[in-house]
Design a protein around this nucleic acid. Structure first.
Length: 476
DNA sequence: ATGTCC
């Protein structure tokens, strides 16, 4: 990216001043190195977001931002419905409520190592992964609607996991305002056999070891110590979320003119929050959030079953579950005034600071856990929300390493088999149904996650708590 | 991300 047009606010914050049809400035949080490596399209896309009706304060890009459909991945934007604000399907992303949860196991790395191969094989056998994968749960119409309304709460009631899991999930596991009747039959049909499946692309289930603690107090509150084994699950709402996104995107493009919305880019199709389509999308999108929460909950149950067999002394407790493709109604202070806003986070994690009422009581003094999934074979990080992040980007942080190379380019450069062999040599066991998928996800195709986390920390978006190193990875 | 193009 050409940084000569940007105003440097500080070493980790850069502004594109409002110009032309931009209603507000665009702000990118990154250090100079990340910024220079960032695709020019991120600046274009985030500037286009700043042109949408009802946008408040600024459009933001996180340190892991890269080119996406309409909105950049790693984009945050909030809209005021009272001010003509919009909701955008492309601003949430196709994989609605894609997210990651981390489970504590109570195990130390040494206990796990003797069983590493058995665990890798059993997880791969029990966790459905890959394009079009189907699971052990099959939903009829009635159960589909119950799942879409109930989320992880529905899953726990059906025997998948523990009641105590729910308090460690955003929205206590059930997104309010979901409207299953706004989800098309086609979307439901695609999902009926896909519950409890990882999917493909960058989705994974990873067994990890805590390799470094950065913040002792926060780590103690989160239950993390050096040498601990944890499990992280990254996946979303599968075919259902994709279908909802596709259908509403089309509908929003067709209706934009009727709502007097001039689209700077077709891919930024949106509808006023206060319109039939806006409300219908919000209902369907929230149902999609519940689908993703239920999906991760079922996968958690399957993971517990595998550990019970291979390492029966393990006790898997949910640390936290974050969604990084959402639009949520939140109250934020803007220029001294509290406003109800529709906050879009696409490839960005909610990061509420200490004291926020939505953070579970026993974690509230340190802030919300923010889980940053690394790429395959690289570290992941646990951060905590900060008090200052509300004024920086509506309490948001990055979500991962962010791609640095296209999938196509990655498959030309690497072969899945060799990527797996190299990682095996470093003690990391990869299991995947797709060699090509492994090549696409080669560590070299991603940005340096440590640099991304450092920029998020130094920029004040969140504070680093712990680093996790992979031991076993089931890759979609 | 995605029944990787109804």
């Amino acid at each position: 990216m050409d940084i000569s047009e940007l105003i440097k606010c500080n070493d980790y914050c850069w502004e594109i001043p409002a110009q032309g049809k931009m209603r507000v400035p665009a702000v990118i949080y990154a250090d100079e190195t990340l910024l220079q490596a960032m695709d020019e399209k991120v600046a274009q896309q985030i500037s286009n977001v700043a042109k949408l009706p009802g946008i408040v304060q600024a459009a933001y890009a996180m340190p892991d931002a890269h080119w996406g459909y309409g909105f950049p991945i790693g984009g945050v934007a909030a809209f005021d419905a009272e001010d003509g604000g919009v909701v955008s399907a492309g601003g949430v992303g196709f994989d609605i409520s894609c997210g990651v949860r981390t489970l504590l196991t109570g195990l130390k790395k040494q206990e796990l190592m003797a069983k590493q191969t058995a665990l890798a094989d059993m997880l791969f056998y029990q966790i459905p992964a890959g394009v079009g994968s189907t699971g052990c749960v099959h939903l009829n119409h009635q159960e589909m609607d119950a799942m879409l309304q109930g989320g992880a709460r529905w899953a726990v009631r059906r025997g998948f996991g523990l009641e105590s899991d729910l308090e460690r999930i955003e929205e206590q596991g059930c997104m309010a305002g979901a409207d299953a009747s706004q989800v098309s039959e086609q979307a439901k049909k695609r999902q009926k056999d896909e519950m409890g499946t990882l999917g493909s692309g960058n989705h994974y289930l990873e067994v990890q070891c805590v390799s470094r603690i950065f913040d002792q107090r926060a780590a103690a509150a989160f239950g993390l110590q050096e040498g601990d084994v944890v499990v992280s699950i990254h996946c979303g709402s599968r075919g259902l979320g994709h279908q909802i996104g596709t259908e509403f995107l089309k509908r929003m493009v067709l209706e934009a003119g009727r709502h007097g919305i001039e689209l700077p880019d077709r891919e930024l199709a949106c509808a006023p929050v206060n319109s039939a389509t806006g409300q219908a999308y919000l209902g369907a999108m929230r149902a999609g959030i519940n689908c993703a929460l239920a999906n991760r909950q079922i996968l958690t149950h399957l993971t517990r079953k595998v550990f019970a067999e291979i390492l029966p002394q393990a006790e898997l407790r949910l640390l936290y579950d974050v969604s990084h493709n959402t639009c949520k109604v939140e109250t934020h202070e803007v220029e001294g005034r509290k406003r109800k806003l529709f906050v879009h986070r696409k490839g960005a994690t909610r990061a509420f600071g200490p004291g926020h009422p939505a953070v579970p009581g026993d974690l509230r003094s340190v802030g919300q856990p923010v889980i940053i999934g690394g790429s395959m074979g690289t570290a992941s990080y646990i951060l905590a929300g900060t008090a200052g992040s509300e004024q920086l980007a509506y309490s948001s942080a990055c979500h991962g390493a962010g791609r640095a190379m296209s999938r196509h380019a990655a498959t030309k450069r690497w072969r899945g088999r060799e990527v797996m062999d190299v990682l095996a040599g470093r003690g990391i066991m990869i299991r995947s149904p797709s060699q090509r998928g492994v090549a696409e996800e080669a560590p070299g195709a991603y940005k340096d996650v440590a640099a991304v986390v450092e920029a998020a920390d130094a920029g004040g978006l969140a504070t680093t708590v712990a680093r996790l190193e992979p031991l076993v990875c089931v890759k979609g």
